Computed example of a mutant assay.
Amino acid sequence: MIELQQNNPLHGLKLETMVTELVDFYDWKILYAALRLECFNTNPTMEACLKFLKKTEWARERVESFYLYRFKRMPKGSAAQFELKPRERGFADGIVPRKPQELTIELIAEMRAKATADYEAMKKNNTRPKYGKDKPRAQDGYAQNKRSGSKRPAPSQDPNNPWGK
């Protein structure tokens, strides 16, 4: 079991340590804006937050996913990986966490507004992304979000480089 978990940044990490790292880096207000959990908003204390997260599995999984993909900035997994709980996911050998993503309340609001607009546009067009023989799947995460005139560098085409750089 330990061999299966050696490439998981959450293995052996206590919930208290994780929340402490997040609060120290982001603060309660940014965590509330990003995760929308009341334990980060209404009179936030470490004890109350931990008590809530230990009792509420969906909230704990949301915090663990945030820790993995925003704070540790691990590469996104396959659809099969996302079927697993965050503590059960693994990463390839040699993948190490990167610097935490800088977040502000304004940036979170922009990301949420873009996601809402994208969802509404999809719902209005009554289209869902379908993948099969007739619709090719994007080769990388940037291909779906690429805008003309974007200043974002083109991702690497190296399949051994999950970071895309």
Score class of each variant (00 low, 15 high):
residue 49 C to V: 10
residue 12 G to E: 11
residue 161 N to W: 07
residue 141 G to M: 01
residue 138 A to N: 07
residue 75 P to D: 12
residue 161 N to A: 02
residue 88 E to T: 15
residue 41 N to L: 11
residue 94 G to S: 12
residue 94 G to R: 04
residue 95 I to A: 15
residue 44 P to I: 08
residue 14 K to N: 13
residue 35 L to P: 00
residue 140 D to N: 11
residue 8 N to R: 01
residue 82 F to Q: 12
residue 10 L to H: 12
residue 69 Y to Q: 01
residue 57 E to Q: 08
residue 144 Q to M: 08
residue 159 P to Y: 00
residue 105 I to E: 15
residue 116 T to R: 09
residue 80 A to I: 03
residue 152 R to I: 04
residue 95 I to C: 15
residue 111 M to C: 00
residue 149 G to E: 01
residue 127 T to H: 13
residue 84 L to R: 13
residue 17 T to M: 14
residue 47 E to K: 10
residue 79 A to K: 11
residue 154 A to G: 08
residue 1 M to P: 14
residue 139 Q to P: 06
residue 83 E to K: 14
residue 164 G to C: 02
residue 64 E to Q: 12
residue 69 Y to H: 05
residue 68 L to Y: 00
residue 58 W to C: 06
residue 117 A to S: 08
residue 79 A to W: 12
residue 11 H to E: 09
residue 114 K to C: 12
residue 150 S to Y: 05
residue 94 G to D: 05
residue 139 Q to M: 09
residue 44 P to K: 11
residue 39 C to I: 03
residue 155 P to S: 05
residue 71 F to H: 14
residue 16 E to K: 07
residue 20 T to C: 11
residue 3 E to W: 11
residue 31 L to E: 02
residue 127 T to R: 11
residue 112 R to D: 00
residue 131 Y to C: 07
residue 117 A to W: 08
residue 44 P to N: 13
residue 82 F to L: 15
residue 14 K to E: 15
residue 162 P to S: 06
residue 97 P to V: 02
residue 121 A to N: 14
residue 116 T to Y: 06
residue 33 A to R: 07
residue 123 K to E: 10
residue 77 G to C: 13
residue 12 G to A: 08
residue 160 N to S: 13
residue 50 L to P: 03
residue 12 G to F: 07
residue 52 F to M: 07
residue 103 L to P: 04
residue 37 L to R: 09
residue 93 D to R: 04
residue 108 I to D: 05
residue 110 E to H: 00
residue 60 R to S: 02
residue 149 G to N: 05
residue 111 M to A: 03
residue 45 T to F: 02
residue 150 S to K: 00
residue 7 N to T: 12
residue 118 D to A: 11
residue 28 W to G: 06
residue 25 F to A: 04
residue 37 L to I: 03
residue 116 T to Q: 05
residue 12 G to S: 06
residue 54 K to W: 02
residue 53 L to E: 00
residue 81 Q to R: 10
residue 15 L to E: 09
residue 16 E to P: 01
residue 158 D to G: 03
residue 124 K to L: 13
residue 84 L to H: 15
residue 140 D to E: 09
residue 73 R to E: 15
residue 100 P to D: 11
residue 68 L to S: 00
residue 110 E to W: 02
residue 115 A to H: 02
residue 82 F to S: 15
residue 129 P to G: 14
residue 165 K to E: 06
residue 89 R to F: 06
residue 17 T to I: 14
residue 27 D to Q: 08
residue 131 Y to G: 05
residue 119 Y to D: 07
residue 145 N to L: 14
residue 138 A to P: 14
residue 61 E to N: 14
residue 138 A to E: 10
residue 71 F to K: 07
residue 115 A to K: 03
residue 114 K to A: 02
residue 106 E to T: 06
residue 162 P to D: 14
residue 117 A to L: 02
residue 7 N to K: 08
residue 121 A to P: 07
residue 91 F to T: 06
residue 22 L to H: 06
